[in-house]
Design a protein around this nucleic acid. Structure first.
Length: 303
DNA sequence: GCGGTAT
DNA sequence: ATACCGCTTCGGAGT
DNA sequence: ACTCCG
């Protein structure tokens, strides 16, 4: 039990030596130190977004759980926002300062997931996410798919930002100016995915059912929905080696030496120190989908 | 990790 | 007293 | 209407 000063808050931390990642022996203390140090770069990406927290108090080899509703027992300085769900409401944590991140790390919050809208206009997403999910351990095929997808988004004059998920695949994110509602952004995502699939039907699929994928890379667009979420940039994942979902520079995305498992809780801070945050300009790059919608309709008509 | 409820 | 329990949601497509 | 999926 000890106290960590974060800004003007004093955070009580406990069980610093508890091993959360057996195998490489990453402790809760290391998790807390990582989130403390990464906060300056990470918090801007969390600000205003409803958080879904994935916690593993007994380590990643034991069952963890997701937590959205955080109404109970949180210190009053942690911000929350009550949001509607189909039956009732959920009181989400909003992480808008480093101290909140450290507090959550002490709660064994290994992974943080964020919504694609901000709470002040929660029905209007400011991100469009494509999740490229390769079969087996074929990270290379996710890179190839990302190349095709980025070419398509370029044709639609859309900006795009990529990151590793910390798992097998990649996320490609288009920052949006708010205005469109979920159902319209989702329809755009569906149509984009359909065009994308038609360009390499032997390698790509939009089939949700695993049995129908037949070794092809799955392009998942289902995160573009109210109440859905995706792993946050710089979040740790509950897997061997404590991998981190890591934003990439565009020249890194296609580098054949890229090894996402090298981005871990023990290596990412050094990378940020050396190269900075590849997503720093995301907010200022946001666009409307209106023109892209017209261009996409033309591509759809050609099929 | 921790509050709530059953034992 | 301690033991166990809960702790996400969404929609589309397939059956 | 219920299941699978992430």
């Amino acid at each position: 039990m000890s106290t960590l000063k974060v800004g003007r808050r004093a955070i009580e931390t406990s069980n610093q030596h508890k091993v959360l990642f057996p195998g490489n022996e990453v402790t809760k203390g290391e998790l807390i130190a990582y989130y403390h140090e990464v906060a300056a770069v990470m918090v801007p990406h969390l600000k205003g977004r409803p958080l879904t927290i994935q916690r593993f108090p007994d380590g990643i080899d034991k069952n963890g759980f997701y937590q959205k509703d955080a109404s109970k027992y949180l210190p009053d300085w942690i911000h929350t926002q009550k949001l509607p769900k189909d039956k009732g409401t959920v009181n989400h944590v909003i992480c808008d300062n480093p101290a909140t991140l450290v507090y959550l790390a002490n709660q064994a919050a290994i992974t943080l997931h964020t919504g694609t809208s901000r709470v002040d206009r929660v029905e209007q997403p400011d991100q469009l996410i494509f999740d490229l999910d390769p079969p087996e351990n074929a990270f290379r095929s996710a890179q190839e798919a990302a190349e095709l997808l980025c070419a398509l988004l370029e044709e639609l004059s859309l900006p795009r930002f990529a990151k590793t998920t910390g798992g097998k695949g990649l996320h490609v994110v288009v920052p949006l100016r708010r205005g469109w509602r979920y159902r319209d952004v989702r329809a755009f995502a569906d149509d984009t995915a359909r065009v994308f699939e038609l360009r390499a039907p032997q390698r790509l699929t939009t089939a949700v059912r695993r049995a129908k994928r037949e070794g092809r890379l799955y392009i998942d667009v289902g995160r573009n929905a109210y109440g859905a979420h995706a792993v946050a940039p710089y979040s740790v994942r509950p897997s061997r080696g404590a991998p981190v979902s890591t934003p990439l520079f565009s020249d890194e995305l296609f580098d054949e030496d890229l090894r996402p498992e090298r981005f871990t809780v023990r290596s990412v801070l050094e990378r940020i120190g050396a190269k900075g945050d590849p997503w720093a300009s995301m907010r200022t790059s946001a666009v409307t989908l209106t023109r892209a919608r017209t261009a996409l309709n033309k591509l759809l008509a050609k099929t």
